[in-house]
Simulated assay, not measured.
Amino acid sequence: MIITDTHAHLYSEQFNDDRTAMVQRAIELGVTRFFIPAIDSTYYNAMLDLEASFPQNIFLMMGLHPTHVKENVEEELAFVKKCLDTRNFYAIGEIGIDLYWDKTLLKKQQHAFKTQINWAKEKNLPIIIHCRDAFDEIFEVLEEVKDDKLYGIFHCFSGNLEQAKKAISYNMKLGIGGVVTFKNGKIDQFLSEIPLTNIVLETDAPYLAPTPFRGKRNESSYITKVVTKLAEIYNVSEQEIAEITTKNSKDIFGI
């Protein structure tokens, strides 16, 4: 059984004491493909080190995270563009809009989001969307830029059924992780109405650990809890969940 974690910050400082053992734990459970989103320039070298340690398993993305859009946004965007022009990445992400922490930088976040979407189209790459308290703002941008070159993943999807269908209409897969196991997560109540062909698995490690690890550090091996929950929701085997979601990830990332 091959399981794909389409979103994990495995370079995080929270893994500094046991990173290799943590990755090995996941691999032993069949989690052999890890797609690694970028945050900003300060994490770039750690991403490269992670890739060098597990070259057969780690696949890097490049982008500027919306919560790291600050006054130096142009400098950070220039760094992203330089990296994209220097080597291969498998997606542009994570990018998007986050209004949970700070609403004053909305215009800068919108600018960064649109700029990076355009680069994704130029390079025929998927985008990985971060959305927090910003569904309307995200959809407004996607409506402006939608075309046959727009595709990717709506990372850590936590909206309702209507929002799920709207996200899919922009050629996005839904990234499903630990939230689906939460009693108050809500997405488990309608997810069966979304075809499995529109779903990919993720952890967002070290964040959003699934039940029974909620509140603790998340890691990629815990994605098996998400597989088990989805098997219950869709009334299929865990093997089928793994196969279909990994195929979906291959359709997105091209590998």
Rank of each mutant, 00 (worst) to 15 (best):
N248L: 07
D102S: 03
F157A: 06
F15D: 04
G30H: 13
L230V: 02
E193F: 04
S192Y: 10
D85C: 06
G254M: 11
A209E: 02
G93Q: 09
E232Q: 12
N218G: 01
Q24L: 07
C131W: 03
R214F: 06
W101G: 09
I187F: 12
A26F: 13
I36S: 11
S221Q: 14
D147F: 08
K81L: 10
F113Q: 14
N88R: 12
F190C: 02
I58Y: 15
K108M: 15
G63M: 12
K186E: 10
I241W: 12
A52R: 08
T86C: 04
Y170H: 06
K247L: 11
T86S: 14
I223N: 05
L64V: 00
F35E: 11
A242P: 00
T86N: 12
L29D: 11
I153W: 15
I129A: 05
S221H: 13
S169A: 09
A26S: 15
G152H: 12
L29I: 03
A209G: 00
D136R: 01
N248P: 02
T245G: 14
T32E: 15
S158R: 04
I129Y: 05
C131N: 10
T67N: 10
K146C: 07
P55W: 10
F15Q: 02
M62D: 11
I252A: 07
C131I: 02
I127G: 00
P212L: 00
A134L: 01
L50M: 14
L161C: 03
T86I: 03
L50D: 13
K247I: 06
G93V: 00
E144M: 05
V227H: 08
T224D: 14
E240F: 05
K70E: 14
F190W: 11
Q109I: 04
L208T: 00
F253K: 03
N218Q: 06
I27A: 14
A52G: 07
H111R: 10
E137I: 02
E202R: 04
L84P: 07
N235Y: 03
A46C: 04
D98T: 09
N218D: 08
V227A: 08
K114C: 07
H111V: 02
Q239D: 14
P210L: 00
H9Y: 06
E51A: 12
S237H: 04
S220W: 03
V31Q: 13
A209I: 00
L10T: 06
A8M: 13
S169F: 07
K82C: 09
F253C: 00
E13V: 00
G254Q: 11
T20L: 11
N248Y: 08
F79M: 09
P55R: 08
A231E: 09
V227K: 06
Q116F: 09
Y151P: 05
L105T: 01
A231H: 04
L125V: 06
K107A: 15
A164R: 02
A167P: 00
Y222F: 12
D102A: 04
T104K: 09
F253N: 03
K225A: 05
S192P: 00
S249N: 07
D148A: 03
A112I: 04
E122V: 10
E51S: 12
Y43N: 08
I2C: 11
D188K: 07
V141I: 09
F113C: 13
K250F: 10
I176F: 14
D147I: 02
E51N: 08
N124H: 14
A38I: 04
L29H: 11
